[in-house]
Design a protein around this nucleic acid. Structure first.
Length: 559
DNA sequence: TGTAGTCG
DNA sequence: GCAGGAGG
DNA sequence: CCTCCTGCAGCGACTACA
């Protein structure tokens, strides 16, 4: 977005980190105020450089002090408070707090007692076994730091893993816990349940009356590489490629409250708690409770808690405090976002290279999932179309053969593309271009009259390659004008078009297609992922082409 | 056993 | 450090 | 309008030290 804004957000993040050290407490009010200010700045729209101190102070979360700092940065390119703190706490010293288990207090203690100012000092102190002699630390602390350093690099605090890596692991762990006889219910929560594209750690919540046994089972699972903490109701472990997984076990009557609490987001929870407080209630991970009597109002299910707070259940992907709570309590209610059950067909099955048997297995599985129509795609030109048409003859569900074509550097689509096919899907591939050229490329491809669907609009690979940079409004305008549908791929390393773009598309009359791009029966589950991703973008059900009847899909594909 | 630090 | 209320 | 004052969510779980 705006470069100035990004810079300010960076500066304030650093300010927050340094304030934690300066205050010696991550919970101090000043630290929290900086955090809020950072969030407030990241939500600013418009030209920040043009805003006066007065205007800035009006923004919730920005007070006189932050406003001054913003103006100072705009005018001089620096923030004196930040410079002062940097001097006091050099970057290499601050870096020490990123070691798991080392917070502000211990880091400062190490500096004052042993003069440790950077990683090398710390390593040297470990060598000499000096740390165990510091008052307040012991052999155990020393050993923990040693272990943390060994893991550093792979598991430093900020590392987030692509959802494609995390989801299968989480599903296996949940399945393993589900199999335990003392487990009543179990669900992964956190950013994974909200379907964010990168995941910091996995939070699993289980309901059981025998927490200790469940915990023992959990930390003993074969995938567990290291146990970071192991208590009666809460444990943390590392699995596979150094992914941290936390398990909380709660009594079954609190399952809904726990799942709500641990699903977040934090900002969503804060708003919910405020709504509870207005009613004289309090909301925590155990229950929604009336404060004066201590009576539980709701706890067992999320749905009940939302209902008591005057809201319908909110799909987890929407719980990011981007207006969902206000919408949920409005008379109009939450928008009706698409759910996987709404889907009637799949327009993205990958037919290339599949035998008749494989095709049959694919469409049979699609039918078993309740789908009633499908399109098979080929990227092998008119020969591919002909082959696929023959192979798919008389198979159930298959209504169309589509040609998937790659878009060239200039947005061109080969002259012969789509010959013999029922429609064309333009698949965007990764080409590094200047934003203006990229925009032209996409708009030109969308404007080609053969193209009915555009897929992988941003050509991104989560955790590998960035989304293409282009002017989003122009491209969305083109989609609307030429009546081309926007695909949302459920392929976990793509999830493309991303939610921000889907949400912007909802402001226009743009249709969406949820796409599994499946070549095998198992891969059809990506329809679920596509719908969760679409929910993050507030994708309305009645904008999704493949929730509609064969007739209306046909009309869209061949206008 | 009480307390402090860290994490969530 | 911010927000909101009280009091001037 | 300004200044001054007060509250800011709140806590649990776990670990290590004394």
């Amino acid at each position: 977005m705006s470069k100035l804004k990004d810079e300010l957000v960076e500066r304030f993040k650093e300010l927050t980190e340094l304030a934690v050290l300066d205050e010696g407490d991550p919970q101090s009010f000043r630290v929290r105020a900086y955090e809020n200010a950072t969030y407030a700045i990241s939500g600013l729209t418009g030209d920040i450089a043009q805003m006066s101190e007065k205007e800035l102070v009006k923004v919730p979360g920005i007070g006189p002090s932050t406003a001054k700092k913003i103006r100072e940065y705009v005018e001089t390119g620096r923030i004196s408070k930040l410079e002062a703190l940097r001097k006091k706490y050099p970057p290499e010293f601050v870096a020490l707090t990123r070691i798991p288990g080392l917070g502000p207090k211990k880091v400062l203690l190490l500096r004052d007692a042993l003069g440790i100012r950077n990683l090398d000092d710390l390593k040297a102190a470990l060598e000499k076994q000096e740390i165990r002699h510091v008052k307040g630390m012991g052999e155990k602390t020393e050993e923990n730091i040693r272990q943390a350093l060994l893991r550093l690099g792979t598991t430093h605090k900020e590392r987030r893993s692509p959802i494609a890596e995390v989801l299968p692991v989480a599903r296996r762990l949940v399945a393993a816990l589900q199999g335990h006889e003392k487990v009543r219910e179990v669900l992964y929560c956190g950013s994974l349940r909200r379907f964010r594209e990168t995941i910091g750690d996995v939070d699993i919540v289980a309901a059981s009356e025998a927490p200790r046994e469940v915990m023992a089972e959990f930390v003993g699972l074969p995938e567990v590489k290291a146990v970071l903490a192991h208590g009666d109701t809460k444990s943390s472990v590392l699995v596979g490629g150094d992914l941290q997984v936390d398990l909380r076990v709660v009594p079954p009557r609190s399952f809904g409250a726990a799942v709500l609490y641990f699903t977040g987001s934090k900002a969503h929870n804060v708003k919910l708690r405020a709504r509870a407080q207005q009613r004289g209630w309090t909301l925590n991970e155990y229950a929604l409770t009336r404060i004066e009597t201590g009576r539980v109002i709701a706890a067992r299910s999320e749905e009940a808690i939302y209902r008591k707070l005057g809201m319908p259940w909110i799909p987890p992907p929407m719980r990011e405090d981007t207006g969902e709570i206000e919408a949920a309590e409005s008379t109009a209610g939450l928008p009706e976002v698409v759910r996987v059950e709404d889907l009637k067909g799949d327009l993205s099955l990958q037919g290339d290279g599949l035998s008749r048997e494989a095709l049959e297995a694919l469409v049979t599985a699609a039918k078993a999932r309740g789908l009633s129509y499908a399109a098979l795609l080929t990227s092998e030109g008119s020969d591919g179309v002909a082959t696929l048409r023959r192979a798919a003859a008389s198979l159930p569900l298959v209504r169309w053969i589509g040609a998937e074509v790659e878009v060239g550097d200039g947005g061109e689509i080969p002259a012969e593309a789509g010959r013999g096919a029922d429609f064309v899907v333009a698949r965007i591939t990764h080409r590094p271009l200047e934003p203006d050229r990229q925009t032209q490329r996409l708009v030109r491809a969308i404007a080609d009259p053969r193209v009915r669907i555009v897929s992988h609009l941003c050509a991104r690979r989560i955790g590998e390659s960035e989304a293409l940079a282009f002017d989003v409004p122009s491209v969305l305008d083109a989609l609307e004008e030429h009546r081309v549908a926007l695909a949302v791929s459920g392929e976990l390393s793509a999830l493309d078009a991303p939610p921000e773009i889907v949400r912007a598309a909802m402001e226009r009359r743009i249709r969406v297609v949820l796409a599994s791009e499946a070549a095998t029966p198992d891969a059809l589950e990506r329809l679920e992922y596509a719908s969760l991703c679409a929910q993050r973008g507030w994708c309305l059900r009645d904008r999704v082409l493949n929730t509609e009847s064969v007739r209306s899909v046909s009309r869209w594909l061949s206008p």
